[in-house]
Amino acid sequence: MKKKYEFFDHTADAKFKAYGKTLEEAFANSALATTAIMTDITKIKPVTIRNMHIEAKTKEALLYDFLEEILYYLDTEGFLLSNVKEIHILKTEKYVLDVILEGDYAEKGYDVNTAIKAVTYNDMKIEEKENEVTIQVVHDI
């Protein structure tokens, strides 16, 4: 099976590629990669859920907002993602994302070692081919 995501060298920041058969799967794997930068994601238990509903004009903006929301929930509630339970992306005149995330609270003793300052548009790419979607993101850390 192909990797869900992998990390690449970037002088100051954290760069990854996330893969999926569909846009949804690649978005979900981008969220997992984002969390994996900050903590050992394999240790996070799925004990609580968060729902998100995000609308944006472009795919890139939708991805940016989605990943930023992950950072927001960590800063405000200490929520750490373990897995993406459900994800739907709808394209009408805009893009609409509905997602259910599972995870746990950082204060329970998880080691959060790297805070991501922000999602960036630097080198952001979303490539959609049939059955193969690749997302590239650079986070500022």
């Binding site: 004009k57 940016y64 930023e68 950072l71 922000a118 960036t120 548009y121 630097n122 952001m124």
Partner: peptide, 30 residues
């Protein structure tokens, strides 16, 4: 901390939406 990071993100987005003509001309959205 997170407050400053969010301010930067918020205004990058607001400027990008307000000025699509500028976005189309610059080599990097940031």
């Amino acid at each position: 901390r997170g407050l400053g990071h969010q301010v930067c993100s918020d205004y990058i987005r607001a400027m990008e939406e307000e000025y699509p003509d500028i976005v189309s001309k610059i080599p990097d959205k940031n």
